[in-house]
Amino acid sequence: MTVSEEHGYEAQAPGILRQAFANRSFVTGVVITAAIALMALVSFFWTPYDVTNLIVADRMKPPESAHWFGTDHFGRDILSMIMVGSRNSIAVAIVAVGIGMGLGVPLGCWAAARGGWLDEVLMRFNDLVFAFPALLSAVMITAIFGPGAVNAIIAIGIFNVPVFARVARAGALALWPREFILSARAAGKGKVLITLEHILPNIASMLLVQGTIQFALGILAEAGLSYLGLGAQPPMPSWGRMLFDAQTRMMVAPYLAIFPGVAIVITVLGLNLLGDGLRDVLDPRLRRER
């Protein structure tokens, strides 16, 4: 018997696409996420108007045929700003998830493989980070080290580390006593090699699902930070900043507050649906009761 026969992920490969496309959450999530990603990509080549171009004559125009979502107090086209702002949201959230995965997954796997006092120390350290209110701490970090997209990424990323460490550790701990791991150990493979060859592929789906969830939370956190003026700095448009600008002008131009908010909701909704769908398809044990 070869080790790979026990690998659940290889056995389920053929039917997985068909299963995925039969899942309503997954399909809706993929469509929304792809549309947002496409919008961000298109914004690099084309936007209806130039967002760095301030046309005072066109300021505070309500939605009309020339400006579908209206214009802001500088005469910038809201639709164009939302398109360019999506880049910022996506970039911050993706890198923050990358930081969380890049540090958290090795830590979690290490804790699971070593066990004993190291595991205890790492997990207590995890509890420690969880004791710090994430949003407030992110606000502090960006306020201390200066506002900007890079510091926002770091502030959000730090709080992703314990999340991924916990998921990776739980997944890895459940795998270590399994027969296919035992046989790999009996064959003389070291813990690092086993983690790379057997543990990681088997927890990849859990990590992917968690990654989607953290991505969505990252979008929300970035919007919050940039609402406070701590995220991407003007003239780079960001959804949170647009909402901040809209607040003082809400009496005269409520439409200013509508569209950036809707953009955030749709993006986060798409990612959450994608995450739910992925979990149903990839990990039948965690399948939501429906």
Binding site: L220, A223, G224, Q247, P254, A257, G261, V265, N272
Partner: peptide
């Protein structure tokens, strides 16, 4: 509930201000 989870609370706050205060 799925939509509720996706709503940033400060945006919802702006909408509430508009409807109930303004």
């Amino acid at each position: 509930a799925q939509v509720g989870v996706a709503i940033p609370n400060f945006w919802f706050a702006l909408l509430l201000i508009y409807v109930f205060a303004v």
